[in-house]
Design a protein around this nucleic acid. Structure first.
Length: 986
DNA sequence: GTCCGACCGTA
DNA sequence: TTACGGTCGGACG
């Protein structure tokens, strides 16, 4: 905590009583649980936090804590056994609310502070002092006069129920003395509610007057004889000791031992999920709605928190206001009253609990108990039945669905049918476009008794766009795209594939079949068995409606079951925000990118392809001549035999299948020794690679309808959090060679538009500098100097100015090596130097940057211990085989584990940027469309006239993408450029 | 027809 | 030395 920070301390226990008496009684509708004070408490917190977000003035909290009394046995009882002895037990209907208010605090993501043997007031006094000493402002949320002694120019109070600020002048106005004399005033007046004796006959007015006259209590007691009024004088003389004890009782202890420091009170972002779950349990409907709006979480998809009875019982005990006799409230006694847990009858008492882990357990049991029965699935053939299912989904608030189409490409797919599931085992299929046998007749063959396509979508649209109904699919991006072609804006969404990915990245595939087998122990019908394979395969519209029903309804059923099983694990594993901030919001963003596609110039590719063919043919002739025979140059096996067998060149390494290696690196080395053939092979390979993979393949991906190329991004394919691109892969379009770059000139903007390329500069090294806390690196990035040259200078003692390019090249290779979890073997390979020399480089590097070695070692240790590593945003990458007994295998996993937090954090950063970029462009009234992502680069297309205005918006979003979740210790830098094609823009 | 390894394009 | 996807040849059935 520092100068300018502002700590809010809520007097939780004080609030409970005040709210209980001041607010009208309120009970939970479903079971009559009294929740008036809880409601008031939640509303107060909401308001305080709401204002904290809305206003930008200095008096908003940066730090926040709620303080509670713990037990009635405090040090004051030692001084004065009668202290608070007059207190009666709290009202019956207040008791359950003590625990609930603590849970409310936690639901709001706020520190919940209490300490045995001390009152909340003492903790507040201690924290206020600490904060003030740190230079911070403090606001105590309470109107209790006992706390007014704490008021200073930097510490004020706030009466949340009267919306009144209490500062020094307010204390003086109310009590007639400044805050620092409140202790003496209370010592004189006493406090009947706490049984603090004071001096009889002296109230606040008299006390203030006396203190005004004598200055302080000690002086007053010493000179009491001077007091004119006889009765008053006698009382003061007689009860002087009582006043001294009272002073001890009312003096708050500013040095209470604390377990949690003020630095841990930093205001955390609201966890919408957790908060809504609690508010729903309490049935605070309007607050639930407001929380949903403010946090962007869809309340309908949040399960009410199932409060743990035991937890409530425990929470009763510690409160100071519960007398010892009441502390041992058993769960039996509590559950005899309102049913806090709303437990279903089949659950045993020990299983009622609803810690997130318990919920996972009970959901697992539930899902495994429900058997699969394909004969129970329904085929929907008429509008009335469809309406029944839609109503059912509307009521349940959750529906899993799956579309069956005639193409794996969502940009081309026609819907054949659609399945729904509303609860495990309850699923149906709506056939829409099933065709009979091989009806070659034009448009013919549509099977009877299928609801017309338009009618199906007209009826489904309100459900699929209803904000109170959560739609679940496995691989939602595909569904989103298909639905969007039918004019449906699918939301809100959940995706079981992405949930699995967030939970278990690195633990195998996240396809539905494998998840079903893994979690539900069930093998669903195989798609292949329905459509066949190869030449004899058919499209889904030729599958019989009976078989399609079994298959499709089962998929929806499985999806729903997986969701019930996996979704709670997000909470249990603390991965809700990774899912909700980095995965789910990206679904519509990526879907729109895929939908837009990018324009590719067929003519340019065609011309390039011709050129490549010609060059390759010429080289082919030469190769045949040099080899002395016609062989298949594309076959490494045949090529190896020629080079190392027939021609007897010095063979390098061998591949694991026993073949000679003919890698480009090795052939380059041979070429450098003067051999002609290897050079030709390398050249030939480059040309044919460009031709077959790019110039020949890309035109086939131009969509006949849109005339553009629509790649497909896989969101759950990598272990690190990166996306992958396929069909076509637009993340590996050549750029390194001038020949290859020509391919990029075929990626063009529409007439009147430009392509903008914006890429992060050195993002992974910056992330490394941040996570490993390397001072030289952070400094270099802060100063904007050449990072590889700096590394070389540090390592080899060469000045940056006029540095030989070879020296810089080596440093650059080492820097990349570090990111990849360097080994001497790998570095030696990369730099073509002896392994000993590479090892020496690495040792030197670690000497100069010891933090890097620490980072690597601690990352490995973490991975070994937990089986996974984390990015700076909490995304996990699992390495289940990091404890392998095979040293090579283990070393490989270790390097990957070192790399994953770096690569993954960079991936998270660009994901955050992508989620924010569309709203930012909208806000700025700009029409730019995001088209592509290439790991650290985003490609946009925009009207020529808007280019200048667009670039700064994109740059700002990208450079600030880590904020506010993470404040990087290095700046992010984005280079952006606009041009007519991708080559010139990059 | 399907699968796997070698190779090579990207960050 | 990290992370991917596509193409090809070649082996298998």
């Amino acid at each position: 905590m520092k100068n300018g920070d502002h700590l809010f301390l809520v007097d939780g226990s004080g609030y409970i009583f005040r709210a209980y008496h001041a607010l009208p009684p309120l009970t939970r509708k479903s079971d009559g649980l009294p929740v008036g004070a809880v409601s008031g408490f939640c509303n107060m917190l909401w308001k305080l936090l709401r204002e904290a977000r809305d206003t930008s003035v200095g008096d908003t909290p940066t730090h926040f804590a709620v303080i509670f009394d713990y037990s009635s046995h405090t040090f004051r009882k030692e001084i004065y056994p009668e202290y608070k002895a007059n207190r009666s037990a709290p009202p019956e209907d207040l008791i359950p609310q003590f625990g609930l208010i603590r849970q409310a605090t936690k639901a709001f993501n706020l520190p919940c502070i209490e300490k045995e043997g001390f009152e909340a007031d003492d903790l507040i006094a201690t924290y206020a002092r600490l904060a003030e000493e740190a230079g911070a402002e403090v606001t105590i949320i309470s109107s209790d006069k006992d706390l007014m002694q704490l008021v200073t120019p930097n510490v004020s109070m706030y009466d949340s129920m009267k919306d009144k600020q209490i500062g020094i002048p307010d204390v003086i106005e109310k009590w007639g003395v400044p805050p620092e004399k409140m202790i003496d005033l209370q010592a004189l007046t006493g406090d009947s509610t706490d049984n603090v004796p004071g001096i009889p006959g002296i109230g606040p007015k008299t006390a203030a007057q006396l203190l005004e006259e004598f200055g302080d209590l000690d002086t007053l007691l010493a000179r009491a004889g001077e007091i004119k009024q006889q009765k008053r004088r006698e009382n003061i003389l007689q009860y002087a000791d009582q006043a001294r004890i009272s002073r001890q009782l009312v003096t708050l202890k500013k040095d209470t031992p604390i377990d949690v420091g003020i630095e841990d009170f930093g205001l955390e972002p609201q966890d919408g999920h957790k908060l809504i779950a609690f508010l729903k349990t309490m049935e605070f409907n309007s607050l639930t709605r407001r929380a949903a709006e403010a946090t962007g979480v869809d309340a309908s998809e949040v399960e009410p928190a199932r409060l743990k009875i035991e937890a409530v019982a425990e929470a009763h005990g510690p409160d100071v206001d519960v007398e010892p006799a009441n502390e041992q409230i058993t769960s039996r006694q509590v559950s005899a009253g309102p049913n806090l847990a709303a437990a279903s009858p089949k659950q045993s008492a020990s299983n009622i609990a609803a810690t997130p882990a318990d919920l996972v357990k009970s959901r697992t049991d539930e899902v495994l108990a429900a058997k699969f029965d394909r004969s129970a699935y329904v085929t929907i053939r008429d509008v009335a039945t469809l309406q029944v299912w839609i109503d059912e989904a509307m009521t349940s608030g959750v529906v899993a669905f799956d579309t069956e189409t005639n193409s794996a490409d969502p940009m081309q797919a026609d819907v054949v049918g659609l399945s729904l599931a509303t609860r495990p085992g309850r699923a149906a299929y709506i056939p829409i476009n099933h065709k009979s046998g091989d009806g070659d007749l034009l448009g013919g063959g549509l099977i009877e008794h299928q609801i017309p396509e338009r009618e199906v979508f007209r009826l489904l649209k309100p459900l699929l766009e209803e904000r109170s109904v959560l739609k679940i699919a496995h691989s939602m991006k595909y569904e989103w795209l298909v639905m969007h072609r039918h004019g449906i804006d699918l939301h809100p969404l959940d995706d079981t594939m992405l949930i699995s990915y967030v939970l278990d990245a690195g633990e195998g595939s996240h396809g539905m079949d494998s998840l079903c087998d893994r979690w539900l122990g069930h093998k669903p019908l195989a798609y292949k068995d329905l459509i066949g394979s190869g030449k004899s395969s058919v499209t889904f519209d030729k599958v019989t409606i009976e078989r399609a029903t079994e298959y499709a309804a089962e998929d929806a059923d499985v999806t729903l079951r997986l969701w019930r099983l996996l979704k709670p694990r997000l909470v249990a594993d603390g991965l809700v925000s990774v899912y909700e901030r980095l995965e789910r919001p990206l679904i519509p963003v990526l879907a729109r990118m895929e939908e837009r596609g990018i324009s590719v110039d067929r003519q340019i590719l065609s011309r390039l392809s011709g050129d490549l063919a010609q060059s390759a043919a010429a080289i082919e002739e030469e190769i045949y001549r040099l080899a002395g025979e016609k062989i298949n140059i594309g076959s490494p096996k045949q090529m190896g035999d020629i080079l190392f067998g027939k021609m007897g060149l010095p063979g390098g390494s061998k591949t694991k299948t026993g073949q000679w290696s003919t890698s480009a690196q090795l052939l380059e080395d041979l070429a450098a020794e003067g051999h002609e053939l290897p050079r030709k092979i390398v050249d030939w390979r480059q040309l044919t690679k460009l031709k077959s993979t790019y110039t020949d393949a890309l035109p086939g991906y131009i969509n006949p309808r849109t005339k553009r190329v629509h790649t497909s991004y896989a969101m759950a394919a990598t272990s690190t959090g990166r996306l992958s691109s396929s069909e076509p892969n637009l993340q590996n379009i050549p750029v390194r060679t001038s020949e290859g770059r020509k391919i990029r000139t075929a990626f063009i903007a529409e007439p009147g538009n430009k392509l903008i390329s914006a890429d992060y500069s050195q993002i992974e090294l910056r992330v490394l500098a941040h996570v490993a806390e390397i001072p030289q690196l952070t400094q270099a990035f802060a100063d904007g100097i050449d990072i590889h040259a700096m590394t070389a200078s540090e390592m080899f003692g060469v000045p940056v100015k006029d540095m030989p390019s070879e020296v810089r090249r080596r440093a650059k290779a080492i820097n990349f090596g570090i990111i990849y979890g360097i080994s001497a073997f790998g570095l030696a390979n990369q730099l073509s130097i002896p392994r000993e020399e590479a090892g020496q480089y690495i040792r030197t590097y670690f000497e100069r940057f010891p933090g890097i070695r620490d980072y690597m070692e601690s990352t490995k240790a973490f991975a070994r211990q937990h089986g996974y590593v984390e990015t700076i945003f909490g995304r996990r990458a699992h390495y289940p085989e990091i404890r392998s007994s095979n040293p090579q295998h283990r070393a490989f996993n270790e390097r990957a584990a070192i790399n994953a937090p770096i690569q993954g954090s960079a991936a998270d950063i660009i994901r955050r940027a992508m989620v924010r970029i569309e709203p930012a462009l909208d806000e700025a009234n700009l029409s730019a469309r995001m088209l592509l992502q290439v790991h650290d680069e985003l490609i946009f297309e925009t009207a020529e006239a808007e280019v200048e205005a667009t670039i700064p918006v994109i740059r700002a979003v990208m450079e600030n993408a880590a904020m506010p979740a993470i404040s990087l210790s290095v700046p992010l830098h984005v280079d952006a450029r606009a041009a007519n094609n991708w080559d010139e823009a990059h």
